[in-house]
Amino acid sequence: MQSVVYTRIPRLDPALVERARSIHVADLHEGLGPVVGRQCLMQPQMRALFPAARVCGQAITSFNFPGDNLMLHAAFRVAEPGDVLVLTNGGSPQGALWGEIASHYSRIRKLGGAVIDGATRDTVQITEMGFPVFASHVSVSYPGKRGPGAVNVPVVLAGVTVNPGDLIVGDADGVMAIPPSRVETAVRNAEARMAKEAEIKRRLDGGETLYDVGAMKGLFEAAGIVEIDAVWNDRADAS
C-alpha cells in the first residue's frame, strides 16, 4: 500500500466556525433534524477524556495501521491552528494513537483538539493540561511507527464517515462530524432552538408547568394516554 498525504482541506468561513463554537453538541444535533443529526453523531463509545473537554474545528483526518501511529506525525505537518486531528486505526485498542507529548505539541501549534477511534494514554497528564481529547479506548499499548496509512482521506470513526474539512464538534455529551454543506443549517437551527429554550426556562421560572409550556396535552391525547384517578391495584369489587 502506498501511503499518501493530502495537504489541503476545504475551508469554512471562520466566522461560521466561531458561531458553532458557542453551541452545545445536543443543540447542533437537534438542529440537523432526526435523520442527518443521527448520521453525523458518533457512537457513544467516543467519549471526552475529561468532562470539561470541548472541541470545535475542521477535521484533519488520519488513517493509521492498527498498532501504529506514524500517520499522526504526517497529520501534524499539514494541520493549521484550530484544526482538529481525527485519527483512527479501525477502532483497535492496540497501539496508542495519542498521548501527553502529542497533546503538548498540539497546544504549541494551537490545534483545536483530537478525536480518536482507537486508544489514548497519559490521561492524567492530558487532563491536567486541559487539552481536549476524545477517544474510544484508553490503553498504554505501545505504538509502532512504520505505516502504512493516509492523511486527509475519508475515514470512519465510531460509525460515522468523516471527510477532511468536516466540522468536528464535541463536548461531554458526544462528538459529531458535520459536512461543510450542513454547517450553516445546523448553526442557524441550533441558535433558534437555544432562543426557544431560553423562553421556556423564563416561563418555568415564572411558575408555569412543563406540561403546559411543552403543550403536552395534545401529545398525550395523540398518544392515547389515559389518566385514572386511582391506585393501580385498586379493585372496584374489593371487599
Score class of each variant (00 low, 15 high):
Val5His: 02
Thr7Asp: 12
Leu16Phe: 11
Val17Ile: 12
Val17Ser: 10
Glu30Met: 12
Gly31Gln: 06
Pro34Met: 00
Val35Gly: 04
Val35His: 06
Gly37Ser: 08
Cys40Tyr: 01
Cys40Ile: 07
Met46Thr: 06
Met46Pro: 08
Pro51Gln: 05
Ala53Ile: 05
Cys56Ile: 04
Phe63Met: 02
Pro66Tyr: 06
Asn69Ile: 00
His73Gly: 10
Arg77Trp: 07
Leu87Thr: 11
Thr88Tyr: 03
Gly95Cys: 09
Ile101Asp: 11
His104Ser: 12
Arg107Tyr: 09
Ile108His: 11
Gly113Ser: 10
Asp117Met: 03
Asp122Pro: 01
Ile126Asp: 00
Phe134Lys: 10
Ser136Gln: 11
Pro143Leu: 07
Arg146Asp: 02
Gly147Arg: 03
Gly147Ala: 07
Asn152Gly: 06
Val153Phe: 12
Val155Gln: 05
Val156Met: 11
Ala158Trp: 09
Val162Thr: 01
Pro164Tyr: 03
Ile168Tyr: 13
Ala172Asn: 14
Asp173Asn: 11
Met176Thr: 13
Ile178Asp: 13
Ala190Trp: 10
Ala195Glu: 14
Lys196Tyr: 09
Ala198Trp: 06
Ile200His: 15
Arg202Pro: 15
Arg202Asp: 15
Leu204Cys: 10
Leu204Pro: 07
Asp205Lys: 13
Asp205Asn: 15
Gly206His: 05
Gly206Ile: 05
Glu208Val: 11
Thr209Gln: 07
Thr209Pro: 15
Val213Ser: 10
Ala215Met: 10
Gly218Phe: 02
Ala222His: 04
Ala223Phe: 10
Ile225His: 01
Ile225Trp: 00
Val226Tyr: 06
Asp229Pro: 01
Trp232Ala: 07
Asp234Leu: 06
Asp234Ile: 02
Ala236Tyr: 12
Ser239Gln: 12
